[in-house]
């Protein structure tokens, strides 16, 4: 995809946390695009830096975290150049965010109405009456029954699914161009999960917004995303459109993730979990971050970090296998489902 179609371009984003034990590079040179009107999934295990990436976009990183560098271009403007005041005008207005924990993400001491109205007051200067009218419209839009009544209720009076709908209503109140959804369904019941995902999709079509869907669940990706960025240890390791990624994953980590996922469209002998665990920040490998767990890793992988390279069709891979320098088994380049039977 080319620049003019992208609503958000993140380039070499680096966010670190400075703790007693030293610097933890939570996001370490992340690059991806969000095409306008589309949904980008950011996938990874916990600790891969996907949530920190999301928080960095809105510059909601608080002490001891710090955005160290890179570029976050939203509609061609680098957000990192903006002042805090300018950034506030973007948050909740042009870029909104919903979070994983609907139970704790709403302020327990304010009513639903007060919390939604606040967005209208900040960004559109609306008073209580007009704000309430809009809030009711939004609650209706997200499928909350008898919204007039909900307005005066406190969060504790609502179920988890309802609260997440309120969160969505609040996030979409000002009709943002981009919605960042950080694991929006993880804390919910399975049946509610599907409803919420469906709702986000519907609203996306209706409002014509772009979505960044952050999740560890490849099922969610398959259902909702157009493009996917797979993250591992603070870096994007593979970026592809969703069909390519599921049909033809290339990075061994992506392959591993898919192999550990039960699938209905294919016969599988067994599920193979990825061996080993995510390395802790203080023993981060110098070479490819995935090398210690990678079944194909060579000396090269252990010693040198590969770069994120275009491999055609808008796909990007961070893996030595797909470079000219690769000196290992040439047969590993293509993911074949049959291979799983051997392992």
């Amino acid at each position: 995809m080319s620049t003019n179609e992208s609503i958000l371009e993140v380039t070499d984003l680096r966010t670190s946390f400075f703790t007693e034990g030293g610097e933890v590079k939570a996001v370490d040179g992340v690059t991806f695009d969000v095409p306008a009107g589309k949904t980008l999934g950011i996938v990874g295990e916990s600790g891969s830096g996907k949530s920190i990436t999301a928080m960095s976009i809105l510059q909601l990183i608080s002490h001891p975290g710090k955005i160290k560098g890179g570029e976050i271009k939203f509609r061609g403007k680098n957000l990192l150049d903006l002042s805090e005041k300018e950034m506030r005008k973007i948050r909740g207005n042009q870029i909104s965010m919903i979070f994983q924990e609907p139970m704790t993400s709403l302020n327990p001491t304010y009513t639903v109405g007060q919390q939604i109205r606040e967005s209208y007051k900040i960004h559109q200067g609306l008073g209580k009456k007009e704000g309430s009218k809009r809030a009711i419209e939004m609650l209706k839009l997200v499928g909350i029954p008898s919204p007039e009544k909900r307005l005066d209720q406190y969060p504790f009076e609502l179920s988890g699914g309802m609260r997440q709908r309120v969160m969505i209503a609040m996030a979409l109140a000002c009709k943002p161009d981009l919605l960042i959804a950080d694991e929006p369904t993880t804390a919910l019941d399975v049946t509610i999960q599907a409803q919420i995902l469906e709702l986000i999709k519907e609203l996306q079509d209706e409002l014509g917004m772009s979505v960044v869907m952050i999740t560890h669940d490849l099922g969610v990706v398959a259902e909702t995303c157009d493009y996917v960025a797979v993250m591992y240890c603070g870096k994007v390791v593979e970026y592809a459109d969703v069909r390519t990624l599921f049909k033809n994953p290339r990075h061994p980590y992506t392959v591993g993730l898919l192999k550990s996922l039960p699938r209905s469209d294919r016969d599988q002998e067994e599920l193979t979990p990825i061996k080993g665990t995510v390395p802790s920040p203080d023993e981060m490998p110098v070479g490819c971050r995935f090398a210690p767990r990678c079944p194909f890793a060579t000396n090269l992988c252990h010693e040198k970090l590969p770069s994120l390279d275009d491999v055609g069709d808008g796909e990007q891979i961070r893996c030595w296998i797909y470079t000219d320098e690769w000196n290992g088994d040439p047969g590993v380049k293509v993911y074949e489902p049959e291979r799983t039977t051997e392992g």
């Binding site: 948050r91 979070f99 302020n107």
Partner: peptide, 26 residues
């Protein structure tokens, strides 16, 4: 450090108001 404070910030609420309205009341 609660989630709802993050929500308020994500909404574009001024830091002063985050502290004196959203946080203090709780």
């Amino acid at each position: 450090s609660q989630d709802y404070i993050r929500t308020a910030r994500a909404k574009g609420v001024h830091e002063q108001i985050v502290i004196y309205r959203h946080a203090l009341k709780n």
